[in-house]
Each structure stands twice: as C-alpha cells, then as structure tokens.
Amino acid sequence: MLLIHCPYCQEERPETEFRHGGEAHIARPTNIADISDEEFEAYFFIRSNEKGVTFERWRHAHGCGRFFNAARHTVTDKFIKVYKAGEPKPTLAELGLESGESQ
C-alpha cells in the first residue's frame, strides 16, 4: 500500500484514502464542441503511459476531497513530488532529475 502526501492536508496518508484520477495536465479544450476529431482523440484517448516519471492526478476522496497532482516513478512507485491542482507541471530539472533519467 502506498503512502501519499496530500498537499492540502499536509499529511502522509494511506492509499486507501485516495482515488487515482488518471494522467495530469490534460486540459479540457474550452471550445470543445468545435474541435476536430483528431483534436478530440488527442485530448480524450491518447495518454503518455510513461515507464519512468509520470504526472498523475489523485483525489483525497476520504480526506479533504480535493484533487491534486503527483509526479511518480512508475517502476519504483516512488512519489517524487505532490502539488496542488492548477500549479504548473514541474520540469525534470525541478524534480532533481536529469533529462533521460526519467527512464
């Protein structure tokens, strides 16, 4: 079971309190009704599925109820960083990783 630090509660809590929310930093197009099939495909269906550092959404469903983002390594399951929804996606350098190290 993972321990996850909620950036709102400022607490490390067990995974059972959280619900995974898929890949982070995929903004819903504001003109969604008008986008092309290709744009909709890219928005709705295509995910990066990294082996390495992945950026993903979590909701502290049985805690504060809020969504936040995390950078997690998919091989080791290590959480490199958690940050609030709306904050910019950190670069690998900001995560203390060299480019290429994400693998």
């Binding site: 929310g21 903004a27 959404r57 469903a61 809020r66 969504f67 929804a85």
Partner: peptide
C-alpha cells in the same frame, strides 16, 4: 459525486 467534483475542481474551478 467524484465525476462532479472532478469537473468542478479541475475544469470549472
């Protein structure tokens, strides 16, 4: 509720 919260918090905050 999760679905609504998701949109409210992350798309229509």
């Amino acid at each position: 509720l999760q679905h609504m919260e998701d949109y409210l918090q992350t798309e229509f905050p």
